[in-house]
């Protein structure tokens, strides 16, 4: 798949503070790429460099084949982290305005604005002033304003923040629509569930550095599958088990087992039966993105939040 966005050892400092350090990233055409990281990880700075709003101190950038997004800004859509629109403008008008800034003609921009509003359940509010909308509706309008010109690359900075579950679902549908249309989406978030559901690939940042880049299953494999095991006999020791690399005794008859990558929890259960260990609990805990995220950025994130 062709690469639409590539960062190679990109760095950016503000005075003595190193916001982004040697960040590398590849985003393939038509994919949804998650940009994960705690507050202060460098996500917004990275996105601003990608958009050409900030110049990197070092490293190389390529956006839709151009060294700067400024040259291809009409093919890029952007939703900033903090949302805001002209309060006195009407919904259709504001969407059309931003689409026109991206090169669309007046009539086409207006047509697309109305069509997008209709498609996403806001048709009745086309002529309503932005100041009359609820926060969620306003945010939806802003998302539509960022995609009305039909961008090839859509960059969404924390698109789900501040949305209720219903509107989060609507936004997920918009992202899925964009993907189905062939657009590439890069979005930053610290909501792991959404990243797991939506992303083809993801990058995890911490302290301005890239800590991981890959698919969700690849991320999961960074941590072992854990099994919580409890025996009826408090003194029983299951002994070495197949595939188990770490065996921690938590208390009388309670164990926490960590499996090697690729090991099958079923073979551990089988071995327990073969050894006539009477089990009261056998709980397999699949690694999720949250575990991986905390594992990768936990200490750094706490440090950053104290800064």
């Amino acid at each position: 798949m062709p690469v639409v966005l590539e960062l190679e050892r990109v760095s950016k400092s503000f005075g003595d503070f190193r916001a982004v350090c040697d960040l590398s990233l590849r985003v393939e055409r038509g994919s949804v790429h998650g940009f994960l990281g705690p507050n202060g990880a460098g996500k917004t700075t990275s996105l601003r460099m990608i958009l050409g709003m900030l110049l990197p101190d070092s490293g190389r950038l390529s956006v839709l084949g151009s060294p700067s997004a400024l040259a291809v800004r009409d093919r890029v859509g952007y939703l900033p982290e903090e949302k805001g629109l002209y309060r006195s403008m009407r919904c259709a008008e504001v969407i059309a305005y931003f689409a026109r800034l991206k090169g669309l003609g007046r009539s086409e921009a207006t047509r697309r604005a109305r069509s997008l509003l209709e498609r996403h359940g806001l048709g009745a509010f086309a002529m309503a002033k932005v100041e009359t909308l609820s926060k969620g509706m306003g945010q939806k309008v802003q998302v539509l304003a960022s995609i009305a010109h039909g961008p090839e690359l859509v960059i969404l900075d924390e698109p789900f923040s501040g949305l209720d579950p219903v509107n989060q679902q609507v936004l997920e549908e918009i992202v899925s629509d964009l993907k189905a249309r062939g657009a590439t989406i890069l979005f930053s978030t610290h909501v792991m569930a959404q990243a797991e559901r939506l992303c083809d690939r993801l990058s995890i940042l911490g302290g301005g550095r890239g800590l991981f880049e890959g698919t969700v299953p690849e991320a999961r494999r960074l941590l072992p599958v854990r099994i919580a095991l409890e025996t009826s006999d408090p003194s029983a020791d299951p002994g070495p088990l197949p595939g188990v690399v770490v065996r921690d005794r938590l208390g009388a008859g309670r164990w926490s087992l960590a499996l090697a990558v690729g090991a099958d929890p079923g073979s551990v259960l089988e071995a327990c039966f073969e050894r006539s260990i009477r089990l009261r609990r056998f709980d397999v805990h699949e690694t999720d993105l949250h575990d991986v995220f905390v594992h990768l950025v936990g200490p750094g994130a706490r440090e950053a939040s104290m800064r």
Binding site: L51, G52, M53, A69, L70, R73, V76, Y78, L79, P80, E81, E82, K83, G84, L85, Y86, R87, F98, L101, K102, Q142, A145, S146
Partner: peptide
């Protein structure tokens, strides 16, 4: 500036 429209504008125009 305060409602961050500038950020969207600067992503669209110089």
């Amino acid at each position: 500036r305060s409602n961050r429209i500038l950020e969207v504008l600067v992503s669209s125009v110089t």
